[in-house]
Design a protein around this nucleic acid. Sequence first.
DNA 1: CAGTATCTTAAACACATGTTCAGCTTGACG
DNA 2: CGTCAAGCTGAACATGTGTTTAAGATACTG
Lengths: 228, 228
Amino acid sequence: MSSTRREGGAASADLTAQAKIRNAAIAHFARDGFQKTNVRTIAATAGVSPGLVIHHFGSKENLRAVCDDHVLRILTERAHGTSPAGMQALFGQYQSDPEEYHLYVRYMMRAIEEDTPAATTFVNTLVDGSEQILRDGIAEGSLRPSSDVRALAVLSVLISLATLTAPPPLARTLGFEQAGPGLLQRLGLPVLEIFTHGMYADDSILKAAQAVWHGAQESPQSPKGMND
Amino acid sequence: MSSTRREGGAASADLTAQAKIRNAAIAHFARDGFQKTNVRTIAATAGVSPGLVIHHFGSKENLRAVCDDHVLRILTERAHGTSPAGMQALFGQYQSDPEEYHLYVRYMMRAIEEDTPAATTFVNTLVDGSEQILRDGIAEGSLRPSSDVRALAVLSVLISLATLTAPPPLARTLGFEQAGPGLLQRLGLPVLEIFTHGMYADDSILKAAQAVWHGAQESPQSPKGMND
DNA sequence: CAGTATCTTAAACACATGTTCAGCTTGACG
DNA sequence: CGTCAAGCTGAACATGTGTTTAAGATACTG
């Protein structure tokens, strides 16, 4: 890209215009979404003319692709540095540096909502990693066996993402303006309680469900007709 | 609104133009979101001219408000007809009529993402109802006591909504094109397993967390400095 | 039938927004 | 200093889109 300027720094001043534009775009995409963010706003935040944005990135769409890759790389690089299981990995990362991490998590959540290629890669990495950790934990004995480890992995990722990026209406039901460290801390204990004890006092509901499930699974034709 | 035509029917033909427009708008808002849907598309789906949309609803924004209220009313009316606890309520409704219900759930999920007033009302209703059910269940003995019932209610609603409206990248990790009855069925058993047994083999993680939590809660100053 | 109110349409308008372009500034190099 | 390449700008362009408006179609009323 540039021959003489430095690249990849963290300070806001003293950055390549490309980097300033990219960072501004990431911030706005994360906060307001891709559609609601226009090129002029990004340019203004980056302290740059609108034309330069297109000059450097070709189009708004391509700028999004660059931002996607950038955030994806940051997120996956960090995820590789940790070991604990699925949710703990995400939560731990988050708690360690909420301010910066929250931006990237929100960005990725928006990407997931809009079904971007980078989002698919990210989710696949998360689910595959989670599944592996679950299998290891089950083999090791620290986790209970499951009838469907893959689905459990998906579920744990789903819960992690939902907890990290709870939409404002949900966050407000606990008195928070939006998802963040406060909400996460409030939800953390109930999550762990459920993950260790469950919430049902007995296993009657599970037993009933298992009976229906097994009955449906072992007969070639489903009892009620399942669509999709 | 109209004096001679009927209102509130379910068939697609033989409906007020207002109703046709509203239904078309709901379908498109649910599928593509508010921003990506333009008035001309709604009009085309409703078999109507673009001008008529504004003539009847004043503006696209107001059309959204009308759709919000309509979906909110449908969803809350149905929710009142059922008794079982939080997740079961939503899941049960969904399984009973996935085709139509899925549309409204997706619509409401989009509304929640975009933080619409109706979304706040819906979420509040859900959380409050869930909390009440949890308290009843705990008092009755069918549910385990919790250290934070309110947070648990929020969490269960969060899990319900996330499971019902899992974004496509997540759904694809289990081989589904998008969230729907198939995904819900696949995730249902793991959910119940977690809700009855948990997933941790022992309570070491919970104990550790409780120690930290209590230590942090009972000392006036937080040990590490919690922001937000 | 005439009148009138409502429904509906097609074209035009106004504005936001992605993109292009001609030119200005800056700095390196011979 | 002269030249050139690259960074950068501000205005203009093209298009998509919400909205307005004038007129036509339709149905009910006296």
